Computed example of a mutant assay.
Amino acid sequence: MYKKRRSLNQIKEEISYQVLRDKLPETWVIHEYGPDYGIDCVIELFDYIDEERTMAETLGENFFVQLKASSSIEYCTRRSYPRGNVAKGSLNENKTEYIDIKVAKFQLEMSELLTVQSMGLAVPVLLILVDTNTRQAYFVCLNDYIDKVLEPEDARYFEKASKTIYIPTQNEILNQEESLTALRAYGKRSKMYGAFGMFHYQKKEIERGLGLAAFNSEEDIQNKIKMISRFVETAIRQDIWSGHEFWKPIAWSRTDLEDLKQNLDAGIDEEHQAHFLEHCNVHVWHKLTNLGNMYEELVREWYLPTFLAQLTSYPEPGVPVVLAKA
Rank of each mutant, 00 (worst) to 15 (best):
E270R: 09
V232F: 11
N223K: 13
Q238T: 02
R237I: 08
H275L: 07
P249K: 06
A274H: 11
N263K: 07
R237D: 11
K224G: 04
N263L: 10
L291R: 13
Q262Y: 13
I240M: 08
S242V: 08
N281H: 07
D239E: 08
D269Q: 02
Q222N: 11
R237M: 09
E296Q: 07
K226Q: 08
L264M: 11
G292E: 02
D259N: 04
H244W: 02
E245M: 05
E233P: 12
V282G: 07
L291P: 14
V282C: 02
H275C: 03
L260D: 00
H244L: 08
L264G: 09
D256Y: 14
M227C: 00
R254N: 15
V284F: 06
H283C: 15
T255I: 13
A266M: 09
L291V: 01
E270I: 02
F276E: 10
F231W: 03
H283P: 02
H244C: 08
C280I: 05
G243Y: 09
N263A: 09
I228L: 15
K287V: 14
H244F: 15
C280K: 01
H244A: 02
N281F: 00
H279V: 10
L257S: 08
N293H: 07
M294W: 08
I228M: 15
I250F: 05
W241I: 03
L277Y: 00
I228H: 07
L288P: 03
G243Q: 02
K261Y: 10
S217G: 04
C280T: 08
D269Y: 09
L257P: 14
S253V: 15
I250R: 01
E278P: 05
T255F: 11
V282N: 11
L264E: 03
K261A: 11
I225V: 08
L264D: 14
R237H: 14
W241L: 08
